[in-house]
Amino acid sequence: MKVSYYPGCSLEGTAKEYGQSFETVARDLGIELHELNGWTCCGASSAHVTNDEMAVSLGVRNLLLANKTRMDLVVPCAACYQRLKAAEKAVNTRKTIEGIPAGFATQGRIRHIVDFIWEECGEQAIREKVRKPLQALSPVCYYGCLVTRPPHITDARDPEDPRAMDDILKSLDANVKNWSYKTDCCGGNLMLTHPELARKLVARLFDMALEAGANCIAVGCPMCHASLDTVQRDITRSDGASYNLPVYYFTELMGLAFGNRAAGGWFNRHLTDAKSLLSRNGLL
């Protein structure tokens, strides 16, 4: 199957391993990705707090490119996904927006890759690819805010309890733990401006993941990953111990289970040790 692909700015930098693992896994699953030629930033979390019109226009510019391809548009970053969906809703519901051709309507669907992979491939196709089952891993799936919220923008069926990532990782035989914090915010938005506040939210997520019996966290958002992986060493538990919870992109775990040799390179990019848990269990 062919889809167009909007990587988003962080996949060129801090979330490089997310892009690499997604592209690898897509190839394994027979998905042909066509990167949107000349894509630009969606406006992220800064445009909509600054100017509504600008936020919509930055998104729509990319939707115009996607329309030319007549394919669905897949998006790995939760924030990009939500901003592009917001732009889509704005142009499809409001009559006129300056600079946007009259009668413009999006052709294909905009899809976050966690839902896209689960809906298009499903359990059978994923299971067939598994070379190294992940029984030793007990992840909690952390979706964050913007894959599902707000549902009038994202069209999420169950915004408080998404399940696609859980289902994908169960298909890799991972011992997925259930928890109530799937969509609780990590404070990623405030990581640079109010780090002390953001850390409180992150620490609670770590505590709850441990309470659920997890030995790692799976994510599908570059901002969540940055916020959980990058600053983890700066946060200690109430008893002073460190958390040591590896934070994996769900696509990395797919690539690992599929036996992809490139996987080791992805985990090298993490700031919180992501390899010990895997090598201890013969997965790497």
Partner: peptide
């Protein structure tokens, strides 16, 4: 992060940047 290869040193400069500048000008 640079040691881990998470930093893109040279920014992409895009022809599409012109259209983006226009969006900012209008806003």
């Amino acid at each position: 992060m640079m040691r881990k290869g998470k930093i893109k040193l040279v920014p992409s400069r895009l022809w599409a940047g012109k259209q983006v500048k226009e969006i900012f000008r209008k806003a």
